[in-house]
Design a protein around this nucleic acid. Sequence first.
DNA 1: ACCTGATCTTGACGGCGTCAAGATTCTCCT
DNA 2: AGGAGAATCTTGACGCCGTCAAGATCAGGT
Lengths: 234, 234
Amino acid sequence: MTPSRSGANFFLMPEKPQAKRKLKAPKTAKQRAYHHGDLKAALVEAGARIVERDGVMALSLRGVAREAGVSQTAPYHHFADKEALLAEIAATGFRDLSAEMARRGSGIAGASPRLGALGTAYVVFATENPGRFRLMFGPLIGEKAAYPTLLEASLSSYQMIREAVAAYLEEIGPEEAGGDAENPEAATMAAWSLVHGLATLINDRGFDSEAMGAPDIETLSALVTSYLRNGLGR
Amino acid sequence: MTPSRSGANFFLMPEKPQAKRKLKAPKTAKQRAYHHGDLKAALVEAGARIVERDGVMALSLRGVAREAGVSQTAPYHHFADKEALLAEIAATGFRDLSAEMARRGSGIAGASPRLGALGTAYVVFATENPGRFRLMFGPLIGEKAAYPTLLEASLSSYQMIREAVAAYLEEIGPEEAGGDAENPEAATMAAWSLVHGLATLINDRGFDSEAMGAPDIETLSALVTSYLRNGLGR
DNA sequence: ACCTGATCTTGACGGCGTCAAGATTCTCCT
DNA sequence: AGGAGAATCTTGACGCCGTCAAGATCAGGT
């Protein structure tokens, strides 16, 4: 226990939100630090931790509250119900997915290898964060479009794939791309379907990548996504 | 109440398992008709009904028992726990998926259109049975390989896709198929990933097929799966 | 005819999501 | 400065859930 000069403080924070409190903080940022200190973010974080540690089905609202060190009903002051909390956790998943795609895609010159890098990023994120990935696409959140932050984060990820597909279609030229050049929606759908299906199947079935000649996830991902660009057999 | 000569029988069955009882029935078929008359099958049926009517998350073991007209703990004499019942429902899903693929694939001559028909069957099954599809691949069943009947049914579906892919690779010839000719695993993975991802995305997001120039599910499915055979842009 | 085991029931326990009511603490206006 | 009012958090309770324990009912082989 590090000594604290502010009396009995059972919820020891990283001692950051301690000095700057009265300094004309823009009041647009509503959730500042009331009793707990941004409990909303702490709950999302605790939920993400539980979901990866114990699995999606072991995620209970009471458990999240317990992990965050508050009472069972405290989350109801920040989320309408359990599903709203799950939606927020899923939104962080989409943001991290976009970040992973940006990380692996940046600095790659050609549109074709860049598209492959995004696909690999997608599969890698799914296998490294299976709990949140299942939350993002699984049935635990019924109406995903009902949560604006989740919708926005997922659309952002979709746009990244869409732009990479469009760039690829442009690179191969309009005579090769056919009618997809000015309407890359269907091609985007195919690309997303491929990586999404691969990620889902890897997570849900126990596919060992060695069984099909791919030593690791990244190689398997590159192998499968190459089919999309070249067609079966090539 | 139809008159019955065998005393008080509260669970009236379709009066089939009534006459042929002592006729050297092979006792390998264990679950014959004790008190209820194949309650196990009735529970699976009731569960499938609930899952399609009210969604995966609304499926409770007590609710299934209620729907079947028995007490809450009656299912425990036929299934180890809730997950075991879900696994059995999911297994019927895989069997119906295989049947749909067989129905749409039979009578199609060329390997390429046959492969496309299987893909369409996959997507159509998923969109017509979203509840069971989510059960088959969602996180509600934790260790799917732990249930032999589920594993067998899913492997059977996998084999159908695999054979169609192998036939297609053979049809286009070894020089086009490259190294995949004698190892169609990776190509099967790609094909399954594509249709599975498409089905999942259609179910979980509210994709309207008109937004991408496909009037209905079947056309969208045919459009997307054509990318697999031809490659992006063509 | 009885016994063994399979089948189904009632009753109970702890955990869950959620509502209601009260206590505490922060913000903001005068 | 100080008090009103809102935001935050707590305790307690309700009904539903999955599951266990113990008893009742019934089928079929000996």
